[in-house]
């Protein structure tokens, strides 16, 4: 016998993600999915930008790594609630893992949740975590060709942040090509240059994040008004 099914293979993950998204919206939490290669500086970026966000926002972080809780410890050292997810080999975070992590956070005390995804330019792009914004981090030591080599990652990004720009004089990073390829692939993306080492550009990044929070809150308020009638 033959059964016609015609259903998304990841429907279980997608259903879980929809549920997480609903919970986050109900708690008025704005979420950012931070993605990039291992070593691009995702955790350093969080460390750098946190001091600029904290006066205005209550931030929490979910850290995804294959093994160890090193990153969660780095974030927790700043006094920020941090939950570590260890995927034990899996290359991305999914809806189930997110649900487990959300369970461990005091959701009523959070304005902004940043999810630091597994260091990987391929797989995390495929798994929507119910985030409101996608922030992709690339560092100059990786090369500008990553934009065209891993288009899926950069195509849906709301912002692409170029890190380690203090090293530009020492590496063969084609900055012009980077801008050209990225604007062609994703004309809507905000592009920011930063150096977590010198703190250059971090204020602009913090500003972008705050704008995201404001935009999402306005959207939530609009939806609430519409629901009221």
């Amino acid at each position: 016998m033959k059964i016609d099914i015609n259903q998304r293979i990841l429907s279980a993950h997608e259903a879980k993600t929809a549920q997480n998204k609903q919970l986050l919206a109900a708690k008025r939490i704005v979420t950012i999915n931070l993605m990039g290669s291992p070593g691009a500086g995702k955790t350093s970026l969080l460390e750098g930008v946190m001091a600029l966000l904290r006066p205005d926002l209550r931030v929490a972080v979910i850290e995804g790594d294959l093994f160890t809780s090193k990153d969660a410890k780095r974030v927790a050292a700043l006094g920020i609630p941090a939950v570590q997810i260890n995927t034990r080999g899996a290359c991305h975070l999914d809806g189930n893992m997110m649900e487990g992590a959300l369970d461990q956070l005091a959701l009523d005390e959070i304005d902004l949740l940043i999810i630091e995804n597994i260091g990987n330019l391929v797989c995390p792009a495929e798994f929507d975590l119910g985030e409101d914004f996608r922030l992709c981090l690339l560092s100059v030591t990786e090369g500008e060709d990553k934009i065209t080599k891993y288009p899926l990652m950069f195509k849906d990004a709301d912002a692409v942040v170029l890190n380690k720009v203090d090293l530009l004089p020492y590496v063969d990073f084609g900055l012009k090509q980077f801008y050209q390829d990225l604007t062609l692939l994703n004309p809507q993306a905000t592009i920011l240059e930063v150096s977590c080492r010198t703190a250059a550009g971090l204020a602009e990044l913090a500003e972008w994040i705050k704008q995201c929070v404001t935009a999402k809150r306005q959207e939530l308020a609009r939806t609430a008004m519409q629901e009221k009638g």
């Binding site: 016998m1 059964i3 099914i5 259903q7 293979i9 990841l10 429907s11 279980a12 993950h13 899996a90 290359c91 991305h92 999914d94 990987n120 391929v122 797989c123 495929e126 798994f127």
Partner: peptide
């Protein structure tokens, strides 16, 4: 790498339908 988790989800789905239709 994430192909493994995709197939894992697929297998869950297939087994669920196979059970529903009493497939051996």
């Amino acid at each position: 790498m994430h192909e493994v988790s995709i197939i894992q989800s697929l297998m869950d789905q297939v087994e669920r339908y196979a059970a529903e239709y009493a497939m051996t």
